[in-house]
């Protein structure tokens, strides 16, 4: 049984830790071939895949950002329109209320005027009829008085 460090100490004719031989160039060739195989099977396809995904994500993200911006612009537009529409509706309501008020007042005023006029007419009529009636009464009274005076005078 040979102790292992005797081999390591290069005492043996064959073998040893630092036994360099044709393994070295063959291994180098093997690794170079492996590099080309892995490049064809692994690095190129996976790299293409990953980079395609990265660019896909980037474009999708910019698209989404643009869409968000557009949506925000649209929202601002629409809320402006909504505000304008509300203001317009408000002013319409105010206008309508004012007009209604005006109409109401006008109708009220004309109705009052008409009522006043017809009351005046009625008052005049009453006055005239009272005067007429008074004149009639006065004439009747004078006539009666005259008849009384004549009958009295005739009796005496």
């Amino acid at each position: 049984m040979t102790s292992w460090f005797l081999f390591a100490a290069a005492g043996a004719p064959e073998g040893g830790l630092f036994d360099l031989d044709a393994t070295l160039p063959l291994m180098a060739i093997q690794v170079v071939v492996l590099t080309f195989i892995l490049n064809a099977l692994f690095f190129r396809p996976v790299g293409r895949n990953v980079e395609a995904r990265e660019s896909f994500l980037a474009t999708t993200r910019t698209d989404a950002k643009q869409k968000v911006l557009q949506a925000q612009r649209l929202e601002a537009d629409l809320s402006n329109q909504l505000k304008e529409a509300r203001q317009k509706a408000q002013s319409l309501v105010v206008d309508a209320e004012e007009e209604m008020d005006k109409l109401y007042r006008a109708a009220l005023a004309s109705a009052q005027a008409e009522a006043n006029a017809s009351r005046e007419v009625a008052r005049r009529e009453i006055d005239r009829e009272r005067k007429q009636a008074l004149g009639q009464l006065k004439a009747d009274a004078e006539l009666l008085g005259d008849q009384i005076v004549q009958r009295l005078l005739a009796a005496t």
Binding site: L17, F18, D19, L20, D21, T23, L24, P25, M27, A28, V31, V32
Partner: peptide, 12 residues
């Protein structure tokens, strides 16, 4: 763990 391999890699 073989010196040939590591020297081959290092020379590459």
């Amino acid at each position: 763990a073989d010196i040939n391999t590591t020297i081959a890699l290092a020379l590459l």
